[in-house]
Amino acid sequence: MKPSTVNDPRRTERAPGLSLKMRGMLTAWLFVSPTVAGFMVFFLGPLIAVVFYSATEWNMLSQTSTFVGWANYQDALTRNPDFWHVMRNSVVFALGLVPMNIALALALAMSLYRPFRGVVVFRTIFFAPVVTSAVAWAIVWKFLLQGEAGAVNQILATVGIDGPNWLREPNWAMFAVIVTRVIKMVGLNMILYIAALQAIPRDFSEAARLEGATNWQIFRMVIWPNLAPATLIIVVITMIGSFKVFDHIYLMTGGGPENGTLVLAFYIYQQAFEFFNVGYASALAIIMFFIVLALTLVQILLRRRGSL
């Protein structure tokens, strides 16, 4: 007789009072409890709190808070000229960054999605800034883009171009911030596009080629329509990301010059942690929340509709 473990009567006596179903539920809640607790404390609670803050006039220094209702929102939307200036900057930043990022990402992906000798080297290079800290990236570019002494201008000078003082003139500063951000992040979208391109069955473009289509026609008629779902997701992710940019601008321009690169995320930080206008900053945060929410909903709606 083999030693029996399974039928050991002592085990059976321990038949528990809880039903199997209840026990499964309890285990599940045990598993998710850290996540749920953290979610309540660091996300849901603060989200509710920020709604309340936004209805108060609260100065962190004087430690006073009074209920003001919609006043902070009115302040932002109608009275404070800074707000619309900041919104304009944010929109310019997004509208400049997103198309440039998407176009470059797609071009790189089209060049690199099929294997050739050296393809890995190029992919590695174009993705490298993504893993680099935004702080380091901003510091180095700030260094390269200094007025006369900066390396970029000195190199331009050798070919006879008199470069602007990039980070000291509002429009050039915005341009510089956008371009350096695109270079930093384009690798991520490139990778997503490469994955999407590799998922398109090869037969599609081969069939088109047999019918005599040119490269451009193949791209327009076969590849681009098949990339539509990926493009939609990539555009929205990039757009949301562009509204959240903070560290990059904080270190490269500090929002300047003349608030020329002051975008929403930075403005919130400034109001809350530099000027200590907690109520006003909270109202701005809520506005930001709705912008991101709207973008996400647009994405979900578009994805639901028909072919996407």
Partner: peptide, 24 residues
């Protein structure tokens, strides 16, 4: 419900919750 809640957390940037989290 939990999945829906967690998905909603993805939509909220850290900049929105950082202020109350600071006070917490």
């Amino acid at each position: 419900l939990l999945v829906v809640f967690l998905l909603s957390a993805l939509m909220v940037p850290e900049e929105v919750t950082i202020i109350p989290n600071f006070f917490l």
